[in-house]
Structure formats: structure tokens, C-alpha cells
Design a protein around this nucleic acid. Structure first.
Lengths: 192, 192
DNA sequence: GTTTTAATGGAATGACAATTCCAGAATGTG
DNA sequence: CACATTCTGGAATTGTCATTCCATTAAAAC
């Protein structure tokens, strides 16, 4: 009986995500969304709930994609250093794409996490997941002798996570991809 | 003839700065300012101009103080590594003080720099000034033999700047000073 | 063709916030 | 005391924005 949905929920969510990533939550009005996504106001409310819920859905999606990418890039036969270099290269490319808006998660951490418990919880889970993934790869490398015994995988994992944060902020304000890549090189030297 | 000013412009500006640092520009309403600063709305407008101008004045002040601090800490007889460690220690302490709101400049870069040319210009000057200060100290250390000849002072300076950005974001969301300090240690190992 | 659901455009609604306006009280100087 | 200036509290103004409401159209299922 029912009429079928005419737009792709996931696709529209991605468009909203991109708008939020560029403009931030507060600088993106619902009118902006209606205009840019090509879906009527009422349909957006019916499908995703209010602006806050839409944002949270976008952020959740972004986080899941990011973590999947990290898992995939870390999982391989190449030396850890090589895998990490590829991972960071992909991150830099992503953060600099579409006008260099940086990372939605980092932008959310700065703009919203002090005021919004849901965002804060997502950010904490994100940090924890990333640090855990890094730490487990680093521990494996340590066991294989790829990493010196005196290195601390947990501290190194957090260091790499902090480096990611810095790259994201820098990409949002400064248009200097070469500089970001040089920083990646230097950060990876911490592996010894 | 005139009645004298009854509040200290600089002191009130510092209070506004702190409010902006914690809550961000958009999450700080003019009413918040009136209530927290203990100065009437009209006096604020008369003294500083509108909210935007007040914010910019606070950010400018913050930037100047930060740069002065860096200059002062970098200028000394101790080994560069020691001076940088002290500098970063002070930064971490500052960003974690008063509820760990992070760095006003970094927060501004994320929240405002894409939309506000004045903020963007300040951020660019800030980055340039810091990188220049770091680079000149690193070059001096290189000449003195404190730093290996194969190191690139400019790239290292930018790396340290990027590290600062990451620490600021992390301090705003995660309450883990020990982790930040460990990251500082690891970052400084890039000096060799 | 009727029913059910989806979608749309546009008009209320209601809240909130920045800025300005105003009338009065306070405080130094001459 | 008179005057210039500052400060204050509060009201008025204005604009923006999220959200809801409504009337209508479209499409699939039966």
C-alpha cells in the first residue's frame, strides 16, 4: 500500500555530514540543510528527528567509517611503520578534501563536547577505540621485534592519537598539506 | 569633571576571555557576559563595542600573552630540550586549568576561522609567529651542536606547533593530564 | 479507485539573543 | 551646588532559527 521512500537515507545523511563538517553545528541552519540536501524540511524531521538527532546520526556514521578504515589499514602484512604512514596519509587527504574542513569528530570535540553529553560520550569512545587499535598493533610489532622493547605501546598509541587531533585542527585553518605530511613523518619517527 | 571608570578594563576583558574559552563564542550569550562579569550591558557595549569586537579583543590579548610566554621560556641558558619541556608543561597546565577548556586560539580556529576573516588572520599570524620562534631556537641549537645536523628546524618547528594543537583539543575533551605529559615527552624525542 | 504512506511548500509559532534606547542614580570636578 | 560623565536596570526592537502545522500532491498496493 505505502508509497516508497524516494531518497536514499544514507546518501542524504552523508550530505548533511559534509555540511556539518564544513560549517559546524551552529553555523548550519535547518534552512541550509533543506536547501543543500534537496529534501523538504518535513521529510528531514520525519526521517531523522530534529537537528540535534541528525547531527548525532551523522557523527556516529562518521565515527564508524573512520574506525573501520583504521582497522582495515592496520590489518596487513607490511611493516607497521608503512601501514601507519598509509593510514595517516589517508587521514590527511580526507581532512583536506572539500575545502579542508578537518575532521567532524575533532570539530565536534571543540564545538560541542563541553555542552553535549552525547557528543562527549561518542568522543570518548572514539578516542578509546583508536588508542586501543594503535596499542594492539604496536604491541604486536613489539613482539615481532619491529619495535624496540623499551617503547611503551600505550603511550605511543596515545601520542599518535594526539597527533591526529593536531593534524585535524591544522587542516581546518591552514592550507598546507605538505606541512602536515612532514609532521606525519616526524611523528612516526617516535617509533624509533 | 568626569566620573572615573569604576572597573578595570583589562581585568574584565580577562574574565570575558575565560568565559569565551570555556563556552565558545556562540554558546556565550551577552546575558552570560553581563551576569558573570558584573558589569552592565551598556557599559560593556560602550567600552568594548559589540560581542564580536569583545571576542576579538580577548583573543588578541590571549595571543599576545601566549607569544610573550613562549619568547620568555625559549630565552635562557638551559639546553633547548629543557626549555621546551618547561614551555609545554606550562601550556598543558594552562589548558587544563579552570575545567580544562583548552586553548582559546585553537577553539577559535575550529569554531570560527572558516567563517571569520579576522579570526583567521589572527590564527595565521599566531601560527607563523610560533613556528618562527621555534625554528630560530632550533637553528641556534643546531649551530651549537645541541641538535643533529640532519634535522630540519623548520619542519621540527611546525611539528611542535601541530603537537600543541593536538594537546589543546585533547585537554578540552579528555581529562588526562598525565597522558598529555607523556605525549610531550614523546614529541620532544623528535629532537633526537 | 480507494487507501495508505511519502513528500512538498509555505505559513504559523515560539523561543532566544544581539543591539539599541531611555530614564535615573552615582560620582568626581569646578 | 552645578555639570559632565559613568554606570545601571530594564524595556523595546529586531532578526534569526528550530520546530510544528496544514493543505496539497504523488505514488504504490490492493
Amino acid at each position: 500500500m505505502p508509497r516508497l521512500k524516494e531518497f536514499d537515507e544514507a546518501e542524504v545523511l552523508d550530505q548533511a555530514l559534509e555540511l556539518f563538517r564544513v560549517r559546524g553545528f551552529q553555523h548550519t541552519s535547518f534552512n541550509d540543510l533543506v536547501e543543500e540536501l534537496g529534501v523538504s524540511r518535513q521529510s528531514l524531521y520525519d526521517t531523522y528527528g530534529d537537528k540535534q538527532a541528525l547531527y548525532l546520526a551523522a557523527l556516529t556514521r562518521y565515527q564508524e567509517r573512520g574506525l573501520a578504515r583504521i582497522r582495515q589499514q592496520l590489518d596487513g602484512p607490511a611493516p607497521l611503520r608503512t601501514r601507519l604512514a598509509a593510514l595517516f596519509e589517508g587521514m590527511v587527504a580526507g581532512q583536506c578534501s572539500n575545502g579542508s574542513p578537518g575532521c567532524l569528530m575533532v570539530n565536534s570535540m571543540v564545538e560541542l563536547s563541553p555542552h553535549d553529553g552525547d557528543v562527549r560520550a561518542l568522543a570518548h569512545r572514539h578516542a578509546h577505540a583508536i588508542e586501543t587499535l594503535f596499542a594492539s598493533s604496536l604491541s604486536a610489532a613489539l613482539r615481532k621485534g619491529e619495535l624496540a622493547k623499551d617503547k611503551d605501546p600505550v603511550a605511543l598509541a596515545r601520542f599518535l592519537y594526539h597527533t591526529m587531533l593536531g593534524l585535524a585542527v591544522a587542516s581546518r585553518t591552514h592550507a598546507d598539506q605538505a606541512g602536515l605530511r612532514q609532521t606525519v613523518q616526524l611523528a612516526l619517527q617516535a617509533l624509533g
